[in-house]
Every structure is written in C-alpha cells, then in structure tokens.
Write a protein that binds this DNA or RNA. Structure first.
Lengths: 243, 243
DNA sequence: TATTTAAGTGAGGTGGACTCATTAAATGGC
DNA sequence: GCCATTTAATGAGTCCACCTCACTTAAATA
C-alpha cells in the first residue's frame, strides 16, 4: 500500500495543557466509574480521551496518580459550598443533621465515584500520605467542630472521645450505603440522617450512665452499684432469662 | 555442563490433597498478610509453598479464589467459640459490650489479616456473592439479636432501625481501627468498646427529655438499672483501659 | 522562512496472572 | 516384582496491561 492511500492517521493536535489534562481527567473519571479502577485499562482511558497511551504518561506519572487527580477534582466540587450552607443552619441537632445528611446525599448522588474512593483509592498503601486523605480529614473535622460547639454550649456532654463519635458517624454512613454503592440496594439519606443524628445526639446527652447533675448523685451511685453487681456471678437464673 | 552435573532438580513429591492445599493456603496467608494482596505475586506464594506456579492452579482457579479460601479459614478459627463465650455473659449492656469488644479484639489481634479482608477482599466485585460475605452476616446478626433481646426485655426502645445500629457499631469499629490496621497508629479495644457500647446503649434508651434530675427521671433510670440487673452476668466490666 | 521547543506518538519492554503439553510418582492388577 | 494406568506436578510459554523512550511534527519564536 502506498503511503498516500493509507487510512488517514489521527490528526495530531496540540492542545493547551489545561484542556488536555481536563480531557484526560474526564475520560478517566468516566471509565473508572463505569468499570472500577482495577478493571479499567489505560488504553481505554486514552482512547476515550482521544489520545494514545503514551500521552497519558506525559501528564500523569501513573494510572494511580490519575485516579488521585480525578478524586481531587470531585472533592473540590463537593466542598465548594459546604461552609456557606452550614452557616445557614442553627442549633446543634440541626447542624449535625445537616452535615450527616449532606454526607449521605453525596454517597447517594454519585455512588460510582464514592465507591471508587472508598473501595479502590482508600485501600491503597499510600492513601494516608495523599492529598485526598487530607481533604477528607478537613471534612470530618468540620463535623467534630459542630459537636465541640454543642459541648461548649452545654447541650452535649463531654466524656465520649470525639474520635469515637466521628467514627460512628462516618463508619455508619459508609456501612449503611454499602449495598447501594454496589448497585445492589437502596437507602434514604433523609431517613438514615434522622436516625443516625438522633442516636448520636442522644448518646451525647446528659444521662445517668455517664454524667448527671448533682441532684442525681444518689441515683448515679446506685447505678454504679448495680453495674458492680452485674460483674458478680451469684449463680442465680432469673425468670426473665428464660424468654 | 553435563546433564549429570546439573544442579539437582526439586524432588518431585506427591502429597495428599489436603496437605498440599494446607501448605499452599498457609503460604498464601503469610505472603498476602506481609505484602497485601495486589503486591503479592503468585510466584512468591508458590515458592513459599514449595511448589511451582502451575501447581497453585491445580487447586485454586485464581489468585482471588486463593484469597477467599485463606479468609474463610480465618473466619472459621475466629467464630469457633463465639457462641459459647457469649452464653457466659448476661445482661444487655454486658452482652453488647462483649460482642463489640470481641470484634475490636480480632481487629487488634490480627491487623494484617483484617486489613486484607476489609481493604482487599471486600471491595472486589463479587464479594457479596462470596461465602465470606455470608459468614460475616451471620456474625453481625448475632449482634443485632442481642439488641432485639434488649428491646424485647423493655430495656431498650425500638424506633431506631436495627440496621442503623448495626452499621454504627461495625462502621465505628472499622473506622476506629483504620490507622492501626495500616500500622500507623494504636487503639485500645477495651476503651473503644466501653465508649462505643455506652453510646449505642444510651442512644437506645428511653429518653428523659428533661435534663434535670427530677424524681421521675431518677425512678426511670433506677428501673432500667434493675432491669439490667435481672440479666445477671459473671463478666466483669473493666471501665478503665490502658490507652 | 528558518530554527527551536516540546506535545504527541506508537512500537516495544517488563512483569505478573494464568495455561497446557509433558513428565514421572503413586496405585493396582497380574 | 513388573507393567499399565492415573493424575499430581512441572515449567515453558501465552496473554495482557502498565509503563518507557526515541522519534515525529505542530506550534512558537527569531
């Protein structure tokens, strides 16, 4: 075959760096979300971006770095108006509920991307050194700040480590959305936010179990006595246990 | 070099199927735990098991199936005496605390294996069809059963969806042990179990909406304490934990 | 227009999961 | 004890995907 008659080769275009990066990023986002990171090939990303594989590696040192970049762009979009919106909500319960609901809504709104982040990016060995990890931490810290405000206002009690509360909120959200992220179930961000906020809020309110006003001192002492008793085995079986 | 003088080839031994499977499984467990699943190579697993790569594929259809088998053996060991031990604990709070503590202890005791399960096995596309998923569900259902008992006994209130409670417990445990599983932090199963159990327990108790120590509220709390006492337990509650 | 710069290319390199024809160790009949 | 049969074990080889690099050529610059 003569060179003239050959099928016309791809017109080689030289784009501005930003546009090329954007095109590759968008192609990668689409492919990764469709197939998952491991099942995606750099060849397919390149094809969808309208370049050859080698071009990817001019802009990104590795497939994983490309994933990181895709996720960073996502976080930027998500966080854009967070602080602004939170300022419009008053009261500890409402603020807490808003943040939890917002988080669940993100999971609900873009399950493929969230699955990518939680199941494929986060397990990678260097995740905790990545920018995404730091972005995520800033995000959870905002939630902890709301709880600290509640404690400062006397509405919530200290005593439970804040990290436990944080892990309950985000751990619950993650597990609760698990099946949905795989496309194998449903969940309601509103209902889940209500239930989760209630649980957390109640768990942080003054009660006999942790702390109480001075008037409850005797009750508290009794509570502790009961608890001590629970640790003793009198070898007696009550009627209740039969049920 | 003459054939006679060549380095002696591996003595070809034919083992009973069970022993060969056990050897391969143990080698895979060790390598996967050391390096992580993706970073491990089948060549290294084979070498450690004293066979060549092809032999692996006589017993396991894929590297991933080998991982599944390794994890199944782990679950069997972990679950062996669960039910037995739980029968020795009385009282909703104590039973809940026992299950949570046990779970956290497993995470604490074999972080490499748990990381393998949570970060590398669970994200795989067919996880929810796997035997490990079913084993895990049996395990979380036991925890939900304890809460149902508490509700049936009137010690806890219904109203919060049980799945939310379950996700709080296991989600919190997972997030709380996150850094530790990567070898980048510490956590105390005892302290975390206390805090988490308290939060969950309190979140499921009838709420005295008044914050004061009214006589009414005191009575209610005492009633709850007595109800707890009705399930008498030989387990001793350790409030303080070394952090 | 001639020269310089670097974006873009695509043909390999490499490494790891997996396959399969061949080899030989165990087994059983005689 | 010997041969036939079975099948565990082998290891050379295939395939595929990430990544590299020497080269091409479109744009920028003088």
């Amino acid at each position: 075959m003569s060179p003239k008659a050959a099928s016309p080769p791809r017109r080689r275009e030289r784009w501005p760096r930003d546009e090329r990066v954007a095109a590759i990023t968008e192609a990668a986002r689409a492919v990764f979300c469709e197939k998952g990171f491991l099942e995606s090939s750099t060849a397919e990303v390149a094809a969808r971006a309208g370049v050859v594989e080698g071009t990817l590696y001019r802009y990104f040192p590795s497939k994983r770095a490309l994933l990181l970049h895709v996720v960073e762009r996502f976080y930027e979009r998500i966080f854009a108006d967070y602080e602004q919106q939170l300022m419009g909500v008053r009261g500890t319960w409402n603020r807490l509920r808003f943040l939890i609901w917002k988080h669940l809504s993100v999971l609900h709104g873009d399950p493929a991307m969230c699955r990518l982040i939680m199941h494929e990016l986060r397990p990678s060995p260097d995740y905790r050194r990545s920018s995404v990890f730091r972005l995520n931490r800033r995000y959870t810290e905002r939630t902890m700040a709301v709880i600290k405000e509640g404690i400062a206002a006397g509405e919530l009690v200290p005593g439970v480590p804040l990290t436990i509360v944080r892990d309950m909120i985000f751990g619950c959200a993650e597990h609760h959305s698990w099946a949905y992220l795989r496309g194998e179930g449903q969940f309601s961000p509103e209902a889940a936010a209500d239930a989760l906020t209630d649980m957390v809020y109640r768990g942080l309110q003054p009660q006999a179990l942790t702390r109480s006003g001075s008037a409850d001192a005797s009750v508290r002492r009794l509570e502790q006595a009961v608890r001590r008793l629970e640790g003793i085995s009198p070898a007696r079986r009550t009627r209740k246990a039969a049920g």
